[in-house]
Structures are given as structure tokens and as C-alpha cells.
Design a protein around this nucleic acid. Structure first.
Lengths: 223, 223
DNA sequence: TGACATTAATAGCATTACTATCATTTATAA
DNA sequence: TTATAAATGATAGTAATGCTATTAATGTCA
């Protein structure tokens, strides 16, 4: 992969497009580092500004609040994952293999060098695991949803659902299975890292565990 | 059921036991109402105090912060669910029927009148669906976990896992399946309410949807 | 060069998340 | 009953957070 990647995130997410300026790109880059290090609850625009050597007010020109910033990062990830899935499925015809590939991608770190992105992939991955559900688990979800900002997630879900349906035409819950696969991928990774008693992880299969479980789950249901 | 129910929540969760005083019980009751109405992010001890006609300082005497209060409510729910499962499984011998009963309980509102509890069951249920994952999806999870406050969740998970294993002795991931069933029950209820495109819900099966999907998932995997 | 738009810097304010102090009420036990 | 401790209430205060407004500086292209 040797080209410039960029994803148009829904304009409703930001006040000023962070991809369109140096400062904007720095905000995203440093946010990923800082949210990873502090956790989303302790992350503030003030701390971000100090870290970057800029001011709070500058950050507020790009994002209404930190929730929107997180939504931007997660949207970006969803779009990126969507792209990667297309890319990786290109030469695969077998639907079982397609689904396996998707599950592998959802349960492993992002490929290191993809399209000259200098976001920290490891951090981004952990943020997705620990923080992504916080973008929709809010009181205002219905209001936020009206501006279509969750579209990338829905599209990703629909894409996986299409593979699920192609693999098993009779299966009645392709979309719910897909959203469950995505969410369970995150949860099982989080649990196996921090609350292993909620899983069947062993010291030996720590890195592969989520992938193994989700594969078993998906093909158990789909036959 | 005609008796007084009360669950000992781990002492590390609170500063003063809210079950042990009138004010304490009022704090929990009003918190459930207020968290439901405002969402956890907008909920503050100040607002709670005003609502109850007491002071912020009084609330702080019971809980270190609002995260601990949420953890108390969710722990209480886990313990209650654990109790209800025992109660409901009493006369069931068939493991398939046991698992069905558990899934039904996880995907439906709590029974209305149980043991003279005057917490709003509908609100408590919605809080569990929307807010419960926020108790562990925090940077300090490892630190918090040391004081065993997640034990009720782990015990609930282990209890379900035992039924799973009894139903299918060869199944390799009983605990992960159980935590997935719990989490997916919440997610699918949330999604079918607020982001239906992530599910296969129909206007007709709105109330039964999560139950149907999870049942299909569980028995699909377990045979 | 000058008009105009973008970005930065400063300041400020209301709310949040606590902590401390002291007076008052209520339960308890000598 | 009285003393004594424990729980609550009232008031205040501090530092951090979340956000807005205003002005200053910088670039840009007609």
C-alpha cells in the first residue's frame, strides 16, 4: 500500500475539518496518545492543549466538545476498517474465508503501515476497545443519530452482514450477529486483558483468544 | 415472594452503607431516577442533592464519587439477577430450559414486585442497558478490580457458564459465551431501541427481539 | 497595499468535583 | 436520665473543567 489515505468523516462531527490543517491533524494525533494514556474520562481539552503547546480555544474551534472528538476518532476507525475489509477481501471468493478474514481484522491490531497515517495504531486499537461504546451510550443518542454520524458504523455492520448472508442465506439475524461480532470482539479483548475471569482465555492463547472465540461463535451459529 | 430482600454490596464500593440508613436508601432510589432521566454523564451529586432536598456533602459521605455510586447500583443489580436466577431455576431440571429462562431474564424487565424493593425497575433496567459497561470501561479498571468489586458480575457469569457447560460439556468457551450473552443482551436491547439498523428488529417483535436473537445465538453455538 | 479571512492568545464565567468546618439532630448505652 | 457518640445539615471554599467572548497577530490574494 503506497498511497495517501484519507477518510471524509461526516461534517456534523466537527466544527472545522481537522484533516484540512496541520493543527487539526496534530489535534487528532495527540488526542489518540492522550486518550490512550489518561482514559477518556480524565482526558480534557486543556490537557490536550498543554500537551500540544497550543490553547484550549484552538481545540474548541475544531470540536464542540471531547465527545465529538472521540466520535471523530471512532468514525475514522470505522471508515478505515471498512476500507481495509474491502481491500483484504478483494481476491477472496469463499464466503467462509471472507468472514474469517473479517473476524481476524476485528480482533487484531491494525496493520502497521497503511497509507502514510501517522496515528499510533496500537493506541487507536485500545481506544476502540475501551472507549468506542461511549460514543453511542449517551442520553442524546437519538439526537446525535439524526445527523447521520453513526453511518460509518452502520455501513460496516451492513458490509459484514452481507457476507454473513452470503455465507448462510437462511440465517435470520445477519445485522445483529454482525454488531454482536464487532462489540464482542472489543469486549472479549478488554475482558481477556483486564477481567480474565469473564472469559476462557489462557496464558498461552492470550493474543489469539478473542479471534478463536468469535470464530467459533460465528460459525457455530451459521453452520 | 413475600419477604425482605437485601444484598450486601462489597464494602469497598461505598464509604457508608446506603442500606443502613433512610438517607442512604433515598440516595439510591433518587439516583436511579436521576441517572435514568439525565444520563450518567449529566448526573451530578449536586443535582441529586437538590432533587432530594439534602446537601452535596451528605451524598459524599456515602460515596466517593458518582462512578462508585453507579458501581453500587450495577453491583446491586448483578446480585439481584443472580438471586432471581437461582429462584427461577429452582424447579427446572432441563438444562436447555434453564438457559432459556436465564436469557429471558436478561432480555426482559425485572419482575415488578420482588421483596419489597421500591427502586424503579424500569429505570434500573434501562440504566443497566445504557450505563453498566461504564463501570469497568475505565482506565482504573485493574486498580478497582483489586478490591473485588466486580465479583458479583463474575459470579453471575460463572453461574451462567455452569449451565452452559452442563448443557454442552464439550463447549470450549462457557465463560466467554456467558459474558457475551450478558453484554449482547444489553447491546441488542439498546440498538433495537435507538439504532435499529444495527439489528434485525422489526416493528412487530420489538419487545421480544433481543430474547429471540440471543436464544438463537446461544443454541446455535451450543447445538 | 489593503481588505479580509484564518489562527492564536488572553481573559473570564458557570459548573463540577470535591473537602473542611461547625452546628444540630438523632440514636445508644452507662 | 444524662452523656456521648454518630449522623445529618448548613455554609463555605478551592481547584479543575467546560465553554465563550474579545482582541491581537498572521497570512493571502485582489
Amino acid at each position: 500500500m503506497d498511497f495517501k489515505l484519507s477518510f471524509k468523516v461526516n461534517e456534523a462531527v466537527y466544527l472545522r475539518d481537522p484533516e484540512a490543517s496541520e493543527l487539526g491533524k496534530l489535534i487528532i494525533k495527540h488526542s489518540i496518545d492522550l486518550i490512550y494514556n489518561l482514559g477518556f474520562e480524565s482526558f480534557t481539552f486543556k490537557k490536550l492543549a498543554v500537551e500540544m503547546g497550543t490553547t484550549e480555544a484552538s481545540v474548541y474551534r475544531y470540536f464542540e466538545n471531547k465527545h465529538r472528538l472521540l466520535l471523530y476518532i471512532i468514525s475514522w476507525y470505522w471508515k478505515y476498517m471498512d476500507f481495509l475489509i474491502d481491500y483484504q477481501l478483494q481476491n477472496i471468493t469463499d464466503n467462509k474465508q471472507k468472514l474469517k478474514t473479517i473476524i481476524k481484522m476485528l480482533t487484531h491490531e491494525l496493520p502497521i503501515s497503511a497509507g502514510g497515517l501517522d496515528y499510533n495504531k496500537k493506541f487507536l486499537n485500545q481506544i476502540v476497545i475501551s472507549e468506542s461504546s461511549k460514543v453511542y451510550l449517551v442520553k442524546e443518542v437519538t439526537e446525535i443519530n439524526k445527523s447521520e454520524v453513526f453511518k460509518p458504523y452502520k455501513e460496516l455492520c451492513a458490509k459484514i452482514a452481507a457476507v454473513v448472508s452470503a455465507y448462510n442465506k437462511k440465517y435470520a439475524y445477519p445485522k445483529s450477529l454482525s454488531s454482536t461480532i464487532i462489540e464482542a470482539s472489543h469486549h472479549q479483548q478488554f475482558f481477556s486483558q483486564h477481567l480474565p475471569r469473564l472469559t476462557d482465555v489462557t496464558p498461552k492463547n492470550k493474543n489469539e483468544f478473542a479471534c478463536l472465540f468469535i470464530e467459533n461463535l460465528a460459525f457455530g451459529v451459521l453452520g
